[in-house]
Design a protein around this nucleic acid. Structure first.
Lengths: 204, 204
DNA sequence: ACCGGGCCATGACATCTGTCATGACCCCGG
DNA sequence: CCGGGGTCATGACAGATGTCATGGCCCGGT
């Protein structure tokens, strides 16, 4: 048999990270050579250990999994990336693939299939949940302009118009306009709904 | 050596569930005898397999981990419960302990410590993250009345006052009153903030 | 029997929000 | 060079939201 596939694991939850390492470590042809807890550590670790495949979570402190994917692709082009995430947000899939990920697996897929996904990615194949792929097509790319995205993002914590205006250094009227546009584009009835659906679609 | 500690695993994410099983399966004195994906399956599985310890996630479809804890305690009193969850919401801890849980572990604790936690719980000891315990004391119990909780919960999806009133069969004025009270008790400035902080404190 | 507290409702009020029309500025592509 | 689109701003308006005072109902504790 050839040399084992070398893996890098990135997930902010230590327990999940360790558990995934245990799961993958059971496979004879897989070897976890590095574990990190944040997106910022991914590139240094990849440079140091030269893994064949990186398993990255999307939600992480610091640089998120999408950004980390792009960073790894330029720093260590030989390494392939498999996104392993909790949320099957349509936007995540598209952005992950655009960033250069080879695969996208949701955390509620059967554990037995993960090792296969890793092997396929290592062989240069794409691994994508088919149901998610269709969702992604339906949802389409984010129609929000950069500024609208900023404003909506700033509205996530329940800030008032005035607070958002201060944070982004805008007039209150402008904030209201951007919000109104975002509400329209998300088919929402108000700010809170717009935030919810935009988040669900992975537009934020 | 005595017989291994028999475990039941409940987590809605198959990958995490399988990974935890792999992690715990590495320990010679631990044995995973059942895995379920929802809170509703916990009691039947516990009755069927009579595990020594149940590891339950809080966020699950159907019955949540807290309710499942209480249900297991009455159905199979000899079984002890260890809550393993993503979110260290202060309210979760208190409610879990009140429901009869013996331990409470957050998913970003080191993987190596999980097996120890299981063993301690099995011995009848309590396992609680000390930092979380103090948070729990600081946050205190939810000051929200049952009805205020209902209304705030109904407001989570960004519903308007009118929609909430319809859903709970109340007048709009009453809904506004309850919301106003909840906003006051959470020191929030508006509905969205109130929802956020109440969620963070585990009051919903 | 009385009081307090949760619950429901009403009406009134000030404020916040969402919408729309309009106009300015900048930049890019035809 | 002109047009379109994104950005920022203003002003005005209707409707939603948050607050407050008030009153009735029911229940449990004193």
């Amino acid at each position: 048999m050839s040399a084992p596939i070398r893996l890098l694991l990135a997930d902010d939850q230590a327990l999940v990270r360790g558990a995934l390492a245990a799961l993958l470590g059971l496979e004879a042809d897989l070897e976890v050579v590095a574990e990190v807890a944040s997106g910022d550590e991914v590139v240094p670790a990849a440079l140091a250990h030269r893994p064949d495949v990186c398993l990255l979570d999307v939600e992480m402190p610091g640089m998120d999994g999408i950004a980390a994917t792009a960073a790894v692709r330029v720093a260590v082009p030989s390494t392939r990336v498999l996104i392993v995430t909790t949320f099957g947000r349509p936007g995540y899939l598209r952005r992950a693939l655009q960033a250069g990920a080879s695969g996208f697996v949701v955390k509620d897929t059967p554990a037995a299939r993960l090792a296969d996904a890793v092997r396929r990615v290592h062989q240069g194949l794409r691994v994508v949940d088919p149901a998610l792929a269709t969702d992604s097509l339906v949802a389409g790319e984010s129609p929000l302009t950069p500024r609208e995205t900023d404003v909506l993002r700033a509205a996530r914590d329940g800030s008032s118009v005035a607070a958002i205006a201060r944070k982004l250094v805008l007039s209150e009227g402008t904030v209201r306009n951007h919000l109104s546009a975002a509400i329209g584009k998300t088919n929402a009835g108000n700010r809170a709904e717009a935030v919810l659906t935009a988040e669900q679609l992975g537009w934020l």
